[in-house]
Amino acid sequence: MPSDTRKLGLLRRRCLLILDKCAECILRRLLKRYDPRYSMQEIGIAMSKKWIAVALILGAGIGVSSPAFAVSDQDRWRERCPDQAPCFFNDLNYRGEMSWKQPGIGLVNISHKNNDQLSSWANRSYQDAAGYEHADGLGECLPMPKRQRNSWVQGWWNDRVSSWKTNGGC
């Protein structure tokens, strides 16, 4: 029976072979669609086929579920957000400007620079936190439950938070 490391190696090789074939197929179709006179060699692609396929798949908006993609986001929020603290990020996937506070702090208005900029958040504390639509805790409330995170605050709430607290939820 093969070891786990050997199984992962075999799986990785199979995935790369499939990805290479997909990349070549996608590139040939794209080239024929736009200008059949050019071949892959003529356009001088410097990247390997597997990275082109990944870029095309992600660029097309097709969801790809892979631990390789998830790990980078997990590392990003863990690296940027201190342990035991709720954090706000101005861009999705825990990017952009970041602001954090220790748990247990009451309502605070967000700075003018970061007002209405929240696009992702992570709450590493053991206490619920909340964001509010307007300054001084007015308007709708966005719950940020303890030990949870959201890599993309979608819909109405994106870029809407003006005040927040770390001493309880909504």
Rank of each mutant, 00 (worst) to 15 (best):
160 R>K: 13
132 Y>I: 08
15 C>Q: 14
82 P>V: 03
56 L>V: 07
160 R>S: 09
51 W>P: 05
38 Y>S: 12
76 R>L: 13
43 I>L: 10
162 S>P: 04
105 I>S: 01
167 N>W: 10
66 S>A: 14
82 P>M: 07
170 C>W: 07
44 G>A: 02
2 P>V: 00
28 R>L: 00
142 L>A: 09
76 R>S: 13
41 Q>N: 14
102 Q>S: 12
76 R>M: 13
77 W>F: 10
2 P>H: 11
64 V>Q: 01
69 F>W: 08
39 S>H: 02
49 K>V: 03
67 P>A: 08
110 I>W: 00
126 Y>W: 02
129 A>C: 01
153 V>W: 04
86 P>L: 01
23 A>L: 05
45 I>T: 06
168 G>Q: 08
63 G>W: 01
111 S>A: 01
144 M>T: 10
55 A>H: 10
76 R>D: 10
5 T>G: 14
57 I>S: 03
94 Y>R: 11
25 C>A: 15
108 V>C: 08
43 I>C: 14
48 S>A: 12
13 R>Q: 11
54 V>P: 04
146 K>T: 01
123 N>F: 00
65 S>I: 02
24 E>N: 05
99 S>C: 07
34 Y>A: 11
60 A>Y: 12
26 I>K: 15
124 R>F: 00
65 S>C: 05
37 R>G: 04
101 K>M: 13
124 R>S: 01
74 Q>G: 05
